[in-house]
């Protein structure tokens, strides 16, 4: 197991390296110039000479290959460089916000699973019943509702019924769980809704399929109670594809987060990401993409390990 994890961690390196090359190349093609946006942003008249100097200071006038070498060298030292906009180290810019975003992501995942597992199983147990149809319509809307609109609706609802909005000051959960949850549960709900819908749908369809398998018939033929057939025979099998989907959906969850943070005015990765895009701050963008990619790759590893624990057919030695 340990050997397998180490091997997987080693395999992450080429993937992340590929991502680094890809994002570097993609960003250098961006039309627009940070220097111009930064200095001439308010329409101020700045001479070309000043712009040139600023470019030189940021190293933008050097050949691409040199810039790339620097970026790679930095990556190896885990140094993501300095933001071209605020000139603070990228790791510092990301660090404080990553904490908040991961909080929301994990919270959204928990909210999503708490909704999805009972809902999905219920629908599977009574296929084509009124309950099943209601759940299917509910989960399908979950896929159709834009998460940022969901966020707006939650804010409207809070204003309407509670006449209250949380103050957007982030405190980590280990410092003040109540303050943390009262702030973050709302964006987590907005983002987790889609997540729960996807997982519930997957769980339902795999459960329905699993319940048709021969070994379920065998279990019934042994005189197993219907409850045990579901909990001991069907559930462990239906969880397998569901775990995979949870991993895939985590990407969408992060994606939804980037947009939804805006609605709740949270100063997380999403906000930083959007700012970095509008400022053409490639160094910051690159750094963030690498951080997101690392989170994704690590999530996939955790999902694969979980899968192997649940599935005796796959054992890593």
């Amino acid at each position: 197991m340990v050997a397998y994890v180490l091997k997987r961690l080693a395999l992450m390196i080429p993937t992340l390296l590929g991502a680094a090359v890809l994002i570097f190349l993609a960003l250098r093609v961006i039309p627009g110039d940070i220097v111009e946006v930064k200095l001439r942003g308010d329409g101020a008249a700045i001479s070309e000479e000043v712009l040139q100097k600023e470019r030189q200071r940021l190293g933008l006038d050097r050949p691409l290959i040199e810039q790339f070498g620097e970026w790679m060298g930095g990556l190896l030292r885990l140094d993501l460089g300095k933001s071209m906009w605020t000139e603070r180290p990228v790791s510092e810019e990301i660090g404080s916000r990553l904490n908040l975003s991961l909080h929301v992501a994990v919270l959204a995942m928990i909210v999503g699973l708490v909704i999805a597992i009972p809902v999905g199983s219920l629908a599977a147990l009574y296929p084509n019943s009124g309950l099943d149809y209601a759940i299917r319509i509910g989960t399908m809307s979950g896929l159709a509702i834009p998460s940022f609109w969901m966020g707006m609706l939650i804010i409207l609802a809070l204003l309407h019924w509670a006449n209250w909005l949380p103050t957007p000051t982030f405190v980590p959960i280990w410092q003040d769980p109540v303050a943390c949850l009262t702030l973050l549960i709302w964006p987590a709900l907005a983002v987790g809704f889609r997540f729960s819908a996807v997982v519930a749908r997957m769980l339902r369809s795999t459960m329905v399929e699993v319940l048709r398998e021969d070994y379920i018939r065998t279990a019934r033929a042994k005189g197993t109670t219907e409850r045990r057939v579901v909990t001991r025979h069907a559930m462990p099998n239906a969880m397998l594809p569901t775990v995979t989907v949870v991993g895939i959906e985590f990407a969408f969850l992060i994606g939804g987060l980037i947009i939804t943070e805006q609605v709740f005015n949270l100063n997380g990765l999403g906000k930083l990401f959007i700012e970095a895009t509008s400022h053409n701050d490639f160094v910051l963008l690159q750094g963030m993409v690498m951080v997101i990619a690392t989170v994704m790759v690590l999530t996939n590893l955790v999902v694969d390990l979980l899968y192997s624990v649940l599935n005796p057919r796959i054992r890593y030695s």
Binding site: T15, L16, G18, A19, L22, I23, A26, L27, V29, I30, P31, G32, A251, F252, I254, G255, G256, I258, I259, F273, I274, T277, N280, L285, V289, I292, A293, M296, V297
Partner: peptide, 22 residues
């Protein structure tokens, strides 16, 4: 190549591409 692309949430890819393309 597909694996590398898939390390990025779809929306991140879309945002970066949209920003790159103008």
């Amino acid at each position: 190549f597909v694996d590398i692309m898939l390390t990025m949430p779809v929306i991140v890819t879309a945002i970066v591409t949209a920003a790159v393309l103008g």
